[in-house]
């Protein structure tokens, strides 16, 4: 496995999982020696295929579940501690909130839990509730429900916010509005942990991406770092800005392409050759020199999706 890029010192850890193992009563091993630290002002995206252990990790951090082994700390305290919870906001995948309560009423209930809640008007603005305040939860569309649940997570103006699939069911405009709010929270020193299925979202939003699979940490780093790790750039010089994916139609056999300097992967589908390189200019120069018939050339920066698929294979 490639090196894990973890900044060396964590003086301002807000929440941490230390060597966590979680085995359910039915014997399923959900987390296997996982460690994770969230720092102040940081947006962390937790990625992984279904069943990777994302929800388990989030549940442990929220104190809804106890680890089989290892240590969970929120603001230096047990996550069940009320003072820790007073500084934490949570958005979960909820099937249904009480349907016969209005959006305004539900927000007020949650604001009441905290000694210094976010002002109501600010919450309405941050979560985009302007037109739905007076509606019953049962009357809301899927995206509107998500927005209300987002408002509940922010109600206490918490320092640490857990968002489980926050933008599911939102249209593009609403999703971008939520991103803006999340970025503004981080800029104010709040820590945000989000799980998402939208890799584009993690790419656009997260300072740090943590990929887990089968309960284990696969890698952790900035979106650019994660992309470069997964695409085989383990050398010190390559950064994601130099990694490119090249697609073209060429007469060169794949095994020859693999020997060209910089090339880390190459493959042929139908007539199209796809390769990954850490030195795109050198690679291209050589390929063009070797094959004058090369055409349909396309050079791309790797998408997080490619990285994700490579990492969790």
């Amino acid at each position: 496995m490639p090196a894990i890029l973890e900044p060396p010192i964590a003086t301002d850890a807000v929440a941490s999982l230390t060597s966590i193992t979680k085995r359910y009563a039915n014997g399923v091993l959900a987390l296997d020696d996982l460690s994770l630290t969230l720092r102040r002002g940081e947006i962390v995206a937790l990625l992984g295929p279904n069943g990777a252990g994302k929800s388990t990790a989030v549940k442990l951090l929220m104190g809804l579940s106890a680890p089989t082994a290892g240590n969970v700390r929120i603001f230096g305290a047990d996550p069940r501690n009320t003072d820790a919870r007073l500084r934490t906001g949570v958005m979960l995948q909820v099937g249904r909130a009480p349907e016969m309560l209005r959006v305004r009423e539900q927000v007020e209930i949650f604001r009441g839990y905290y000694p210094k809640p976010m002002p109501y008007a600010d919450l309405v603005k941050a979560a985009g509730l302007e037109e739905i305040e007076a509606r019953f939860f049962g009357q809301l569309s899927g995206g509107q429900k998500q927005r209300m649940l987002f408002a509940l997570a922010l109600a206490g103006d918490p320092d640490l916010i857990f968002l489980d699939e926050p933008t599911v069911g939102l249209d593009i405009e609403a999703r971008r509005a939520m991103w803006t709010t999340i970025r503004a929270l981080a800029a104010r020193g709040k820590t945000v942990l989000l799980t998402t299925h939208y890799l584009e979202e993690a790419d656009a939003l997260a300072h740090r991406i943590v990929v887990i699979n089968k309960g284990k940490l696969v890698c952790s780093g900035t979106p650019a770092e994660v992309k470069s790790i997964s695409l085989g750039a383990t050398g010190g010089t390559a950064t994601s800005s130099t990694i490119k994916i090249i697609r073209c139609v060429t007469a060169l056999p794949v095994q020859n392409i693999r020997t060209i300097p910089g090339v880390t992967q190459a493959g042929l589908t139908d007539t199209l050759t796809t390769l990954t390189t850490t030195r795109p200019e050198a690679t291209l120069r050589e390929m063009l020199a070797l094959d004058p018939t090369l055409h349909a050339l396309e050079v791309q920066s790797p998408a997080l999706e490619d990285a994700f698929l490579a990492l969790t294979k």
Partner: peptide, 11 residues
């Protein structure tokens, strides 16, 4: 519905 879980995670 998972609502109780959200309530339990709240303070």
């Amino acid at each position: 519905a998972g609502w109780l879980e959200l309530k339990r995670a709240s303070p």
